[in-house]
Amino acid sequence: MSALLSVEDIHTFIGQFHILEGVSIEVPANSITALLGRNGAGKTTSLRSIIGLNPPSRGAIRFQGKVISGQRAFEIAQLGIGYVPDYRAIFRQLTVEENLRIAERKKGDLDRKKAFILALFPDLGRLYAWPGGQLSGGQQQMLAIARALVPDNQLLLIDEPSEGLAPVIIEQLMAAIRQLSGQTTVLLVEQNFRVARVLADRYVIVEDGRSVHSGLMADLAGDQALINRYLGAA
């Protein structure tokens, strides 16, 4: 099986801190892979290393078979990777439309995708002319995911989409992400194991900057000992 994305034993420093000390992740095409682990384990840094915001100093990252580590973030993104950070990074002064428009890589991207995006997140249609800063947390999360859907991305990196959101909003987001998995590949960081278990096909557990376990989500869900050991009470 050749993976769409393979992260091979990367080490990443932020300043002088050795944050990742050997993370390996295989993400097969058209699947959802969940990156699990406790707070501070290195999940967010793993995503940032992949997109090139915190480039790894050792190891390699391959996307569609080609090494992408070492390229700049904008070049990596242009290969077809969408990034949805945990803080959502909605541009507050820009309208919802402009927040989507800025993600275009080819002219007309948004016009092609608009109907699909608004069908996925009907709220955004209603709020199309609103400034991003006026949106609620859930609406901003939807916009952040929608923004990653504007260009033709083969891979989405989604960091903590459920964080701080009401259960009913989480349900909506889960439905949307589930619907996406048919046509794109997702690497998801998720603190909420219940969410991750429903969404993901595969999992990778990160602890203290190392990937320590991976496999099929169906197997993990039945292994309470493993869950307790790495994820705490879930």
Binding site: L53, F74, Y83, F91, R92, Q93, R105
Partner: peptide, 11 residues
């Protein structure tokens, strides 16, 4: 507001 995110969008 956030140049890192602009870069991560491919700009």
């Amino acid at each position: 507001q956030d140049r890192e995110m602009v870069e991560a969008l491919g700009i």
